[in-house]
């Protein structure tokens, strides 16, 4: 079967790739483009480890077919830091030990960034419900939620 030619933008860079009709965006990111920061935990949209932004919307890349990326703007964990400057969420996750094994971390960071872009002043409950689509088995979520709330407060402070 002929491959499908897709033009897209990934982390700001125009990117083209060839894929099969049944490949997921996650497969293409990981296997075709070498962007292995997005993880596959379940392949069914239940764990959120493959979270990416597609045109500003938080999605599980395992549930997006790769050809659907045509003309879309995709943001992955690899694009979160600017040069050697970590995003405040990335910094805070390390500083506050908001990760143990780290496999779910890229997904949590993408989802948390999406949250703070939409709701810069979330309550603890809002953080917990927003992140309910991301599974973490190591931390019990405590330090993740605290880190996100801390970054939200700091970002509000610096925006003033």
């Amino acid at each position: 079967m002929a491959k499908i030619h897709v033009n897209t933008t990934i982390n700001g860079a125009p990117t083209e790739f060839l894929c099969d009709a049944n490949q997921t965006l996650l497969d293409v990111l990981r296997d075709n483009l070498g962007l292995t920061g997005s993880k596959e935990g379940c392949g069914s949209g239940d764990c959120g480890a493959c979270s990416v932004m597609v045109n500003g919307r938080l999605v599980c890349s395992c549930l997006v077919l790769a050809p659907e990326a045509q003309g879309m703007k995709i943001e992955t964990i690899e694009g979160m830091a600017e040069g050697d400057k970590l995003h405040p969420l990335q910094k805070k996750f390390v500083e506050m030990a908001a990760l143990q094994c780290g496999i779910c971390t890229p997904g949590f960071l993408i989802a948390s960034k999406a949250l703070l872009e939409k709701y810069p002043n979330p309550t603890e409950d809002e953080v917990r419900y927003w992140l309910a689509g991301n599974l973490c088995r190591c931390t019990g979520y405590d330090k993740i939620v605290t880190a996100v709330l801390d970054v939200a407060a700091e970002m509000r402070e610096s925006a003033r």
């Binding site: 990981r30 962007l35 292995t36 920061g37 979160m80 990335q90």
Partner: peptide, 21 residues
């Protein structure tokens, strides 16, 4: 004390390589 873990940057940037990577 509570310093940053040595593998912290790798694990928040997607650089850390896990089994399937």
């Amino acid at each position: 004390t509570r310093p940053e873990r040595p593998d912290g940057a790798d694990k928040v940037t997607g650089r850390a390589r896990f089994g399937a990577d």
